[in-house]
Simulated assay, not measured.
Amino acid sequence: MNGLQYKKFSDVDENDVFFDSLKEDYSEFTTWFAKKSAAAEEAYVFYNSRRRMDGFLYLKVEDTADTAIVPPLPEGKALKVGTLKINAHGTKLGERFVKKIFDHAMNSGADYIYVTVFEKHEGLITLLERYGFEKRATKVTPNGSEHVLVRNLNVVTGNVVKDFPHFETTDKKYYLLAIYPEYHSAFLPDSILNGESHDILEDVSHTNSIHKIYISGINRTKCLVPGDIVAIYRTNDGKGKAYYRSVVSSLGVVEEVRQIKSFQSESQFIKYAKPYSIFTIEQLKEYFTNKQKSYIIKFTYNAALKKRIIRKRLIEECLISTRSRWDFTQLTETQLKWIADEGEINESLIVHQA
Score class of each variant (00 low, 15 high):
20 D>V: 06
20 D>A: 11
21 S>A: 10
21 S>K: 15
22 L>S: 08
22 L>G: 00
23 K>R: 15
23 K>L: 12
24 E>P: 00
24 E>A: 09
24 E>W: 04
25 D>I: 06
25 D>K: 13
27 S>D: 13
27 S>T: 10
27 S>V: 12
28 E>P: 00
28 E>N: 15
29 F>K: 10
30 T>R: 12
31 T>W: 00
31 T>R: 08
31 T>F: 06
31 T>Y: 05
32 W>V: 13
33 F>G: 02
33 F>W: 12
34 A>F: 06
34 A>D: 03
34 A>W: 02
34 A>L: 13
35 K>W: 07
36 K>N: 13
36 K>M: 14
36 K>R: 15
36 K>T: 03
36 K>W: 12
37 S>R: 09
37 S>L: 09
38 A>V: 04
39 A>I: 04
39 A>L: 08
40 A>D: 15
41 E>P: 01
41 E>Q: 15
42 E>D: 00
42 E>N: 04
42 E>M: 09
43 A>R: 05
43 A>G: 02
44 Y>R: 03
44 Y>Q: 01
45 V>G: 08
47 Y>I: 03
48 N>P: 02
48 N>S: 04
49 S>I: 11
50 R>T: 08
50 R>N: 13
50 R>C: 07
50 R>Q: 14
51 R>I: 06
51 R>L: 10
52 R>M: 13
52 R>A: 07
52 R>S: 11
52 R>D: 11
53 M>A: 03
54 D>M: 08
55 G>A: 08
55 G>V: 03
56 F>I: 02
56 F>P: 04
56 F>Y: 08
59 L>C: 04
59 L>H: 01
59 L>Y: 00
60 K>C: 08
61 V>L: 09
61 V>K: 15
62 E>L: 13
62 E>C: 11
63 D>K: 10
63 D>E: 10
64 T>G: 00
64 T>N: 11
65 A>Y: 01
65 A>M: 12
65 A>D: 07
66 D>Q: 04
66 D>C: 04
66 D>E: 11
67 T>H: 08
68 A>K: 15
69 I>N: 07
69 I>Y: 01
70 V>Q: 12
70 V>F: 09
71 P>G: 04
71 P>V: 03
72 P>F: 09
73 L>Y: 13
73 L>K: 08
74 P>T: 11
74 P>W: 10
75 E>N: 12
75 E>P: 01
75 E>V: 06
75 E>F: 02
76 G>I: 09
76 G>A: 07
76 G>D: 04
76 G>Q: 07
77 K>I: 14
77 K>L: 09
78 A>S: 14
78 A>C: 05
79 L>I: 03
80 K>F: 06
80 K>L: 13
80 K>T: 02
81 V>F: 01
81 V>Y: 00
82 G>E: 10
83 T>M: 14
84 L>M: 13
85 K>A: 09
85 K>G: 00
85 K>S: 07
86 I>R: 03
86 I>T: 10
86 I>L: 10
86 I>S: 04
86 I>W: 02
87 N>R: 10
87 N>E: 10
87 N>P: 00
87 N>A: 06
88 A>T: 06
88 A>I: 05
88 A>W: 12
88 A>P: 02
89 H>R: 15
90 G>H: 09
90 G>N: 12
91 T>I: 15
91 T>K: 15
91 T>F: 03
91 T>P: 01
91 T>D: 14
92 K>C: 15
92 K>R: 15
92 K>S: 13
92 K>G: 00
93 L>V: 06
93 L>N: 02
94 G>Y: 08
95 E>W: 09
95 E>V: 10
96 R>T: 01
